[in-house]
Every structure is written in structure tokens, then in C-alpha cells.
């Protein structure tokens, strides 16, 4: 992934309303390649909402979201093809085995088939590859969900509580994978309640917006 160095995601005064209530109001940040943005804050403050806004699942009620890509003049919100979004749900089908699950996502995203073995290996899933999703533990499912990140290079990673139910070894893998992506010039936004000890991480602490009705 040489030459991704200029990727940058900038949010300016982002606002988002859910259920007639402003969950986000005036959130600004700049996530640069090489420095993962760790979003923290109390429950319900809008960490997941912020990631879903950036992923394009939710509409902005105000503010601007700009994704700068190298050799692209115009700045626009990030497109789906730039984004790997791993939410707090794992999306692991109980009837599919781990390998078939990743093969499906590789095919679906148009990735190389050989990326599946590399992703299995990176997350220590090779031994589990033939097991159906139904028998996996919560941490193993989490690893399967995260392995999707490595199937295809996409510059912008949005990870919602990726470390939940991961053991120490899996957290180290996650840290390494995130660090690698950043070193290659990728942009990472991650929400977390506990410190992931990612080097060069930049903190973004969200605080509840002042209560005013959504417009």
C-alpha cells in the first residue's frame, strides 16, 4: 500500500439526530493517516453514531465530512468502497464455516481469493477454519468479523468496540493489524472503552451535547 500517505478524514461540526434528539452536535476531528483516532466517552454519547455517520449509514443533520484521497482533487464524504466498517455485531452465520464466511466476503468485495488464507492466519483462525459459526465463542466470532479487514485493502477503517470479548493475544493481533494499516498510510477510527495501547493514537473524547431539540 505504498503511496496512501495523503489520506485524511476531516469532520467539521458534525451533528446527527436520532429519534428527534441530537446525539452528536458540533463534533470536529481530523483523522490523519498514520495516527489512529480513538473515540472515547460515556455510554450513549454517540460513539457508534459517529462511526455510522462516517460510514454513510446515517444522515448528517449538520456539519461537513471530507475525505481526502491522494491524486483526487475534490474532497467529498468517504464512499462505501473506501470503507471497512466492523460494528459491534459480528455478522457470523451459524451455518457457514469460518473459511466459507471469509470466502464469501472476499468474493463479494471482489478481493483476491488468496487473501482469505492470509486473513485467517493473521487472526489465528487457521485451526478454526472448518468450524461452523454456531460453535465459535464470542471472542472467536469477533476475530472472524475483524479478519474481514484484511481481505481487501481499503483506506478507511471504522471499528466499533473491536476489542470486546477479545483475549490478550487477540488484542495484540488487533493492535498489530491497526498499526500496520496506519503505517501503510491508512486511516483508522476506533471506539473503545478501554485503552488499546495503540502507538501514535490520538484521542477524541465525546461529551454529551447540550440538550436542545433537533431542528
Amino acid at each position: 500500500m505504498t503511496g496512501q500517505g495523503d489520506f485524511e478524514l476531516v469532520g467539521q461540526g458534525l451533528a446527527c439526530a436520532r429519534g428527534g434528539r441530537l446525539v452528536l452536535d458540533g463534533v470536529s476531528f481530523a483523522a490523519r493517516a498514520g495516527a489512529p483516532l480513538v473515540i472515547t466517552g460515556p455510554n450513549g454519547v454517540g460513539k457508534s453514531t459517529l462511526l455510522r455517520v462516517i460510514a454513510g449509514f446515517l444522515d448528517l443533520a449538520g456539519g461537513r465530512l471530507l475525505f481526502k484521497a491522494p491524486s483526487v482533487q475534490e474532497e467529498a464524504p468517504p464512499a462505501a468502497k473506501h470503507i471497512h466498517y466492523v460494528g459491534h455485531l459480528d455478522g457470523v452465520k451459524s451455518a457457514l464455516c469460518v473459511r466459507d464466511h471469509l470466502i464469501f466476503w472476499a468474493r463479494y468485495m471482489g478481493a483476491e481469493p488468496c487473501s482469505v488464507d492470509a486473513a485467517l492466519d493473521a487472526f489465528g483462525l487457521t485451526r478454526l477454519a472448518a468450524l461452523p459459526g454456531a460453535v465459535l465463542s464470542a471472542g472467536q466470532k469477533r476475530r472472524v468479523a475483524l479478519a474481514r479487514l484484511l481481505l481487501q485493502e481499503r483506506p478507511l477503517w471504522l471499528l466499533d468496540e473491536p476489542a470486546v470479548s477479545l483475549d490478550k493475544a487477540a488484542r495484540a493481533i488487533l493492535r498489530r493489524v491497526i498499526t500496520n494499516h496506519c503505517a501503510n498510510g491508512g486511516v483508522v477510527l476506533v471506539t473503545s472503552h478501554e485503552s488499546l495501547e495503540i502507538p501514535n493514537a490520538v484521542d477524541l473524547t465525546l461529551s454529551p451535547p447540550p440538550q436542545r431539540p433537533a431542528t
Partner: peptide, 13 residues
């Protein structure tokens, strides 16, 4: 319910 739809939406379809 299992979050697959979010991933599908980020794909080429």
C-alpha cells in the same frame, strides 16, 4: 440483526 447488512452495504452492490 447480525450486522451482515452493514457489511453488504459497504460492498459494490
Amino acid at each position: 440483526e447480525d450486522g451482515s447488512l452493514d457489511g453488504l452495504v459497504c460492498g459494490p452492490l
